[in-house]
């Protein structure tokens, strides 16, 4: 692998763009995993892709379409906040199918959408521009700032729901704010690292971290470490082997997840 390519100005921007998501998505994934709502992440990413394609057809900015569709999906999820776990899961699955159906139909019928559709699903990280980097950096910084106060509320609502309500705090408001963060992050990430790449980064690192970490803080740190390490490796491999980035990232994370599960079994944890 030619490591110097990582520092080539041509690739430095895309690398930094993806790095923002490699840090942010595993963090957000930890709270999604805590709430057992990881399927919602895939639904958000898929809906964002459909929104971007629809925006392209309408002549609007892709980013705007993706963000709007993901925010709409977050709003729909919010409507199911008080529902049973089964009903919530069904709603996420429906959203996922809706996003996938719209995207594939557009890709199949419109030549312009075909190229963009493949880019959104495979990840178009190397084609990202300065605007992607700025939006990713600003969003990641804002999300990290917002997570600090939101984290305590989400954890309190999970571990002490009665105490949370008794203190006059609104679970629905805290969850909706978090869902909007997740939807925004996934919409932006989908535009650069693709639907499944973004989903892999939000799903697998917390899965690994939850198995090994002894505390929440360590789980967050381990999740970010796994996300960043997998991302850097996938980026380098994709450049060296001239392969699409998204699938390589997903495969690396799957390999890490399997190795983690085997390691835990060997260590007697599972």
């Amino acid at each position: 692998m030619n490591g110097a390519l990582l520092f080539d100005p041509l690739f430095a921007g895309p690398f930094a763009t993806g790095l923002c998501f490699a840090v942010l998505l595993p963090l957000l994934g930890a709270w999604l995993r805590l709430r057992d709502e990881w399927l919602a992440a895939l639904a958000f990413a898929q809906t964002a892709a459909a929104g971007a394609l629809l925006a392209m057809l309408a002549g609007a900015p892709l980013l705007l379409g993706g963000l709007a569709a993901a925010a709409l999906a977050a709003g729909l999820k919010h409507a199911f906040e008080g529902a049973t776990r089964g009903a919530q899961g069904a709603a996420y699955a429906m959203l996922l199918l809706l996003g996938w159906g719209v995207s594939v139909l557009l890709v199949a019928n419109l030549p312009l959408a075909e190229r963009m559709g493949h880019a959104l699903f495979d990840g178009q990280l190397y084609l990202t521009e300065r605007s992607h980097l700025i939006s990713a950096g600003v969003f990641a910084a804002g999300a990290l700032l917002a997570l600090r106060p939101l984290s305590r509320r989400l954890l309190l609502a999970h571990f002490f729901p009665d105490l949370f309500r008794a203190r006059g705090l609104s679970e629905r408001r805290a969850h909706f704010a978090f869902d909007l963060l997740v939807a925004g992050a996934l919409a932006l990430a989908t535009m650069s690292i693709g639907v499944m790449g973004a989903f892999a980064l939000i799903f697998v690192p917390p899965l690994i971290a939850f198995g090994w970490a002894g505390s929440w803080r360590r789980a967050l740190a381990l999740g970010v470490a796994v996300g960043v390490a997998s991302y850097v490796l996938a980026f380098g491999l994709a450049l060296a082997l001239d392969q699409p980035f998204g699938p390589l990232l997903a495969l690396l994370l799957v390999a890490a997840g399997v190795a983690s599960a085997l390691g835990r079994r060997w260590a007697g944890h599972a």
């Binding site: 971290a209 939850f210 198995g211 090994w212 002894g214 505390s215 929440w216 803080r217």
Partner: peptide, 8 residues
Amino acid sequence: GIPFSGAE
């Protein structure tokens, strides 16, 4: 399956 300590 949730990594949360007593101190936390």
